[in-house]
Computed example of a mutant assay.
Amino acid sequence: MRSLSKRTQYSLRALYALARRGVGKPALIGDLSRDEEIPKKFLEQILLSLKQKGLVDSRRGRYGGYVLAVQPEKISVGSIIRMIDGPLAPLPCASEHSFRKCDECPDIRFCGTRIVMRQVRDATADILDRTTLADVCRKVDAAKVEAEEGEGLMYYI
């Protein structure tokens, strides 16, 4: 898989932060920008785009800010990546929905690279499409607990 764009990386971080807060609990752009270390102007563009795509909503007023518009259990990491960066496939000929024959390929039916890249795409899609924002938040929480327990043990060594 190709590397994720900064836009996608920042979008994921912002969505994880909103998911940790819970649906209906708004976060101010300034707080998200500071806490997630995302440039504020870039974050504003990202949140506007995510709002247009129906993933977040904004609220005005004293208790305003951005909130998840969808339960975190219903948003897969794969869907977010596709929404922002496009296909998951490392080559256009391996793409499920955006297939395009590579210019250099004499016959896609027998291209070894395409066969392998389809496997890479399928394995990647399987993981990303089965992993939700809620799953990622649980994994991060578990990693923090594990790290804290590990640090506590160091004091006794």
Rank of each mutant, 00 (worst) to 15 (best):
M1G: 11
R2V: 06
R2S: 08
S3W: 12
L4D: 02
S5R: 03
Q9N: 03
Q9H: 11
Q9K: 11
Y10H: 10
S11P: 01
S11Q: 03
L12I: 11
R13F: 10
A14K: 00
A14F: 00
L15T: 02
Y16A: 01
Y16T: 04
Y16H: 06
R20Y: 05
R20M: 10
R21A: 06
G22N: 08
G22Y: 04
V23I: 08
G24Y: 06
K25N: 10
K25E: 07
P26G: 04
P26D: 04
A27S: 13
A27D: 06
I29M: 04
I29T: 07
L32Y: 03
R34Y: 09
D35F: 00
E37W: 12
I38A: 01
I38Q: 02
K40F: 11
K41F: 06
K41A: 14
E44K: 04
Q45T: 04
I46Q: 00
I46H: 01
L48I: 07
S49G: 06
L50D: 01
K51D: 05
K51V: 06
S58T: 10
R59I: 10
R60T: 15
R60W: 01
R60H: 08
R62H: 09
R62M: 12
Y63R: 15
Y63I: 13
G64P: 10
G64I: 14
V67Q: 04
L68F: 02
L68W: 00
A69C: 03
A69E: 02
A69L: 01
Q71T: 03
Q71A: 08
P72S: 04
E73H: 10
E73M: 03
S76F: 10
S76M: 08
V77S: 01
S79M: 10
I80N: 02
I81Y: 00
R82S: 09
M83E: 12
I84Y: 02
D85H: 05
G86A: 02
G86R: 08
L88C: 09
A89V: 05
A89N: 03
P90K: 07
L91W: 02
L91K: 05
C93R: 07
S95Y: 01
H97M: 10
R100P: 07
R100W: 00
C102V: 06
D103A: 12
D103W: 14
C105R: 04
D107V: 13
D107Q: 13
I108G: 03
F110G: 07
F110H: 14
C111K: 10
T113R: 15
R114A: 05
I115G: 09
V116F: 12
V116R: 13
M117L: 07
R118Q: 15
V120H: 11
V120G: 02
R121D: 08
R121P: 02
R121Y: 11
R121C: 06
A123H: 14
A125P: 11
A125C: 14
D126H: 15
I127Q: 09
R130A: 14
R130S: 15
L133N: 00
D135G: 00
D135E: 08
C137P: 05
R138L: 11
K139W: 13
V140L: 12
A142Q: 13
A143L: 15
K144S: 12
E146N: 14
E146G: 15
A147L: 13
E148S: 11
E149T: 06
E149S: 10
G150M: 07
G152V: 10
G152R: 15
M154P: 06
Y155T: 14
Y155E: 09
Y155C: 10
Y156P: 00
